[in-house]
Design a protein around this nucleic acid. Structure first.
Lengths: 253, 253
DNA sequence: ATAGTTTCGTAACATAAGTTAATTTCGCCC
DNA sequence: GGGCGAAATTAACTTATGTTACGAAACTAT
């Protein structure tokens, strides 16, 4: 059976970078994704800080983000949730959410009940490992963001973010050649890498003028990925995609 | 039985902020900590980026940190590991470490084999939940660091870090009144919050001059915790210590 | 104690990034 | 297809933070 078109398609593709799943595993994942799906419109909230944590959300389509707002309005985007990403495999252990999750684009998500998750992991050793891997990778990404914001220059920070998003999208088959969608406004990028909008704009101009990227409409093209990686010290090892995350064929354009 | 003096003392204390453990749970934890302990001297590496991940490490005593180094020598400290902290409950799923772990002070740690961990979690539902909570809190801390470095001013960043370390130490009984150890050099603080050493020094002077803290030798005193929290927008909810992480009695001085 | 080595403290100066504000371009809706 | 609001762009100016450098203090080891 081809898993193109399965609701859990992107998640399955992602997990297969770590291990190959049996048809049974994939079927179970897909079933779990069908129990309850929800459509949320663009720039809307999925979960609020202070909420009681619910079961697991799987992003089926669209972009979301975790974010936190300070009292005076400053906002930090803490993570991007792309198709195939699971939010919070175990949060229900906590008493309340310490941050919010909002959409960037319109999003379709599957709400997988805690009980279904339990069944998935107890009955499928391989799958259970793969899900564990997925949450370790999410943690590794969060660590890398700390490094990115803490140590890198504006140019490197922005380039690094673009590399990461591109490679993550490629890992789930959402790139065409060296192009992918980038539905973020410059204000959102600014809140992601801790810069002002104006400086994001300047830095974007710089990345363009040295010929490393194009960004028009909501479409990003990375002209020379290798060069960009070098220029911004992007080492994809933290994504744990095997074989360094490079040379993974994307779906052809 | 009193668990003062148990090797896993600090871990037990920490977990009990989340749930109360049975004597059986505590005994199992303590036994697991006794299997293999190791002593590492100050400013030495425990784990190197690129290493094959091993079983779980539990910090029994002393301070360690996760860090990452860029090619040109810039370094970011990604997390502090304090007594009672577990490193990497499931890393063995990954093929290689994407960052290093080094000591700040001399450290005693327990290496808990993967198999022992499995037994711990499968035989003790309560404990298993508590360990899950501990890893969710670690992730929440990492997210908060992203916010801290991304959005806050130097003054807030540093104050926030000090609040966090103080509250975490208090949660395991390692404070005396409003004082705790802070065995970090200013260079290490700088690499933690993404500032230069000089600016850390300036900012420290500022925190002192407004009477919020004292820091001499390796001893930190927070004179007015509430005031400091307000001044730097430190909201301890992300530590999920129940009751907001305040009013937890520390061991008396 | 003494010498050597970190760490801390400060000053003078340099610069990356923030702010404000005005203009242009883009995407969308009637 | 014109008008409206959001997003992007640019310029001029400000500021927080970085850099370099040097001396003082605090540890460490003999």
């Amino acid at each position: 059976m081809a898993w193109r078109g399965a609701l859990a398609e992107f998640l399955i593709r992602k997990l297969e970078h770590f291990t190959s799943l049996s048809n049974d595993d994939k079927h179970a994942l897909d079933q779990a994704s069908r129990q309850r799906t929800r459509r949320i419109r663009s720039r809307d909230d999925i979960v609020h800080e202070g909420d009681l944590p619910q079961g697991v959300n799987l992003i089926l389509d669209g972009w979301a983000c975790r974010y936190k707002t300070l009292e005076d309005g400053r906002r930090q985007i803490i993570a991007y949730l792309l198709p195939g990403d699971l939010c919070d495999q175990n949060v229900s252990v906590l008493r309340e959410m310490d941050h919010s999750i909002g959409t960037v684009t319109a999003v379709t998500l599957a709400e997988i009940p805690t009980e279904t998750m339990r069944q998935l992991t107890s009955g499928h050793a391989r799958l259970s490992q793969a899900l564990c891997w997925e949450s370790l990778v999410a943690a590794a990404i969060q660590r890398e963001w700390t490094v990115n914001i803490g140590q890198r220059t504006a140019f490197e920070r922005l380039g690094h973010l673009l590399c990461e998003l591109y490679v993550r999208l490629r890992a789930v088959g959402l790139t065409q050649g060296n192009t992918c969608e980038l539905p973020l406004t410059q204000a959102e990028i600014a809140d992601t890498i801790g810069l002002s909008v104006v400086h994001v704009n300047r830095t974007l101009q710089e990345l363009r003028s040295v010929g490393l990227i194009s960004l028009r409409g909501r479409e990003l093209t990375i002209h020379r990925l290798e060069a960009l990686q070098r220029a911004v010290q992007f080492n994809p090892n933290y994504l744990h995609l095997g074989r360094e995350g490079r040379h993974l064929d994307s779906n052809e354009a």
